[in-house]
Write a protein that binds this DNA or RNA. Structure first.
Length: 284
DNA sequence: ATGACCGGTCGTACCGGA
C-alpha cells in the first residue's frame, strides 16, 4: 500500500497538479490538508474519475482536510471526540490563564466558536487513517497557541483507545511542529517562534507515548527531509525548509515500512503548494 | 537568474499561513 500526506494549500487552486500527481505517484491513500473549500465544492467527482473516494471535512475559506482512497473508505468521522472549538471573531475568549487541572476543551467552549475542519478519520483496507491539520499557534503568546496545545491534548485522548487496540493505525498531516532542531533550516532563526517550542514538542512526544512512531522520510536531495518551504525569498531553492508534515504510525504500520520519502519534485515548477507530499510504502 | 509568495474573499486591502 502506498500512503501519502500533502498539504495542498487549496485543493481548488491545486487541482490540476493534484490530479497529475495522483496519476504519477499513484498513492492508494492520500491525506490532504488545507483544502480551503466547503464539502459541496470539494472536487470529489474529478477524484472519483481517477478511482478515488473522498472523506471530507470542509468549512469554506480556511482549513479543510480529506482522506482519498482507492482501496476502500469506511467508518468516516469528520472530527474527534472532545475536539476544541475556535472563535475566529473573538479569539480572546481563549486568552485565559492556563490551568493544568482544567479540561483543555473547556477553555475553548464558546457560543460562537466552531469545531474547525482539521481532522478526518477513515478506515482504508483495514488501515485506520487520520488526516490532521493542527492549528498553527501564530505566536506563543497568542490564544491560538493555547488552542494548538489543547487541540493536541484532546486529540491524544480521542485516539488513545484506537491506538491501544493494536490494529494498523496511522495519523498524518500538517502538525505545524518541527520535532527536533534538525527539522528546521536554522534553529537560530526560530527564537520566540512557534513550531519549535518545548510545549509543542512535548505534545508530539505525548502522542508517541501512545505507541506511535515518527516515520521519518528520506530526502530526495540534500540531507534534510523538509516538507515545507515558505514561498517567499527563494526559500525552496536555498533549502530553507521545515519538517512539519509528519506520519505517526503504530508498530503494526511502522514495522512494515518499505520506503518513505519527501516528493520535493511536487514543490517545483509553476503553481506549487508550499508543502511537498510525504510518501510511505507499506508492506500491508 | 545580481531577486524572490500565495490563496481566499460580499476583494481592488487584508488576513492567515509558519
Amino acid at each position: 500500500m502506498r500512503l501519502a500526506t500533502w498539504n495542498v494549500n487549496s485543493v481548488t487552486a491545486r487541482l490540476p497538479r493534484l490530479l497529475d500527481w495522483l496519476g504519477t505517484a499513484g498513492p492508494d491513500v492520500l491525506c490532504l490538508q488545507e483544502t480551503k473549500t466547503s464539502v459541496e465544492d470539494f472536487p470529489a467527482a474529478q477524484l472519483r474519475a481517477l478511482g478515488y473516494e473522498s472523506a471530507i471535512a470542509g468549512q469554506g475559506r480556511w482549513n479543510g482536510v480529506a482522506v482519498l482512497s482507492r482501496v476502500g473508505l469506511d467508518d468516516i468521522v469528520t472530527s474527534f471526540a472532545g475536539q476544541p472549538s475556535w472563535d475566529a471573531s473573538s479569539p480572546q475568549h481563549a486568552d485565559k490563564p492556563q490551568d493544568g487541572g482544567t479540561a483543555p476543551q473547556a477553555l475553548f467552549a464558546s457560543a460562537t466558536g466552531i469545531v474547525e475542519a482539521r481532522a478526518v478519520g477513515a478506515t482504508c483496507a483495514g488501515l485506520r487513517v487520520w488526516s490532521l491539520y493542527v492549528p498553527n499557534g501564530r505566536e506563543p503568546s497568542h490564544p491560538h497557541y493555547a488552542y494548538k496545545l489543547a487541540w493536541l491534548t484532546a486529540y491524544r485522548a480521542a485516539i488513545a483507545d484506537e491506538v491501544a487496540a493494536g490494529g494498523a493505525f496511522v495519523t498524518c498531516g500538517d502538525f505545524n511542529i518541527a520535532p527536533t532542531d534538525a527539522d528546521v533550516w536554522d534553529i537560530g532563526d526560530f527564537a520566540g517562534s512557534t513550531h519549535v517550542t518545548e510545549r509543542e514538542r512535548a505534545a508530539l512526544a505525548a502522542l508517541r507515548d501512545l505507541g506511535l512512531n515518527d516515520v521519518v522520510p528520506r530526502p530526495l536531495k540534500h540531507d534534510t527531509p523538509f516538507t515545507y518551504w515558505d514561498y517567499r525569498g527563494g526559500m525552496f531553492h536555498q533549502n530553507k525548509g521545515m519538517r512539519i508534515d509528519l506520519v505517526y504510525a503504530n508498530d503494526a504500520v511502522a514495522g512494515v515500512v518499505r520506503d518513505a520519502y519527501v516528493d520535493r519534485d511536487a514543490r517545483k515548477g509553476t503553481g506549487p503548494s508550499d508543502h511537498a507530499p510525504v510518501v510511505v510504502d507499506l508492506d500491508l
